[in-house]
């Protein structure tokens, strides 16, 4: 990689000391960034630069750096996980940007995702939604049946698997103009309700998880479809329709 090909960029990064701090955008310059580096590697370079200058590095969430953990959560140039489809921020490469470009980097914005520091947000609201019903109550540990003993339609198995690929990154909430968590919750509802093991508790699960979602302060779905477009795992809006169906029928049948 020759030095000429490196990118010189202006970064407008959200800096916020803690959840109480008001925070604001700070401008930084980075130079000679390889187009082959990932977005997070570019942030690493910025942080080394900041440390070298005696400044506080930018705090951001990251873990696997291969698109499966759902930790990285940056709102880049007005889009969750930046430009490009079906990728997380760690899978975004600097070749997507032009030399001399200004890049805005912000944390997910939602009342239910308070900023912890800089680009890190507290996504424990998702954990509480899962704890409210995102499980199968029967303990299968140690006495699990052979998977093939229960016949499951291939179509349903595939749809359940697709729903289960949700990594809970929160890009759906970040992208939605209403900060709604419907795509996430519906994926978690669907991954169980499509399979026999999860069907027994399907109705109660839909009610409990939707109620918890509302309690956490997420917005309501108005079907703009932004969530599904920005989702790194391409979770479909079909899941939201399925959850609506289950919630509706469960609410009507509830005693």
């Amino acid at each position: 990689m020759s030095a000429e090909k490196g990118l010189n960029l202006t970064l407008k990064v959200w800096r916020q000391k803690n959840s109480k701090d008001k925070g604001g955008i700070e401008t930084y310059q980075v130079s000679n960034i390889s187009p082959d580096s990932s977005f997070l590697e570019m942030i690493d370079i910025l942080n080394e630069q900041l440390i070298g200058e005696g400044k506080e590095p930018v705090a951001f969430d990251h873990d696997c750096r291969e698109g499966i953990c759902g930790s990285c959560s940056m709102y880049i140039n007005g889009q969750a996980h930046g430009p490009g489809r079906a990728i997380t921020t760690c899978q975004l490469h600097m070749r997507e940007f032009k030399d001399g470009e200004t890049i805005y980097i912000e944390p997910w914005r939602a009342g239910a995702f308070p900023v912890i520091k800089d680009l890190m947000v507290d996504r424990s609201a998702f954990d509480r939604i899962m704890a409210s019903g995102g499980f199968v109550s029967v303990n299968t540990s140690g006495n699990t049946q052979d998977a093939n003993a229960i016949p499951i339609e291939k179509v349903n198995a595939d749809m359940a698997f697709d729903a289960a690929t949700c990594i809970g990154c929160g890009a759906c909430v970040a992208s939605c103009k209403n900060a709604s968590a419907m795509l996430f919750v519906s994926a978690k509802v669907s991954q169980f309700s499509l399979l026999p093991q999860g069907q027994t508790e399907a109705k109660q699960r839909a009610i409990n998880m939707v109620n918890q979602m509302d309690e956490e302060g997420f917005g309501n779905c108005t079907n703009t479809g932004a969530c599904a477009v920005e989702c790194p795992k391409e979770i479909s809006l079909e899941n939201i329709a399925r959850m609506n169906r289950e919630y509706l029928s469960a609410s009507v049948a509830k005693e």
Binding site: K12, W14, G78, Y104, E106, G111, K177, G225, A226
Partner: peptide, 19 residues
């Protein structure tokens, strides 16, 4: 309700990219 769900807005947002 939906406005309340995002008390702090984005400085830069590109909603036309996805909806």
């Amino acid at each position: 309700m939906n406005r309340k769900a995002r008390p702090v807005k984005y400085a830069y947002s590109k909603p036309g990219a996805n909806s």
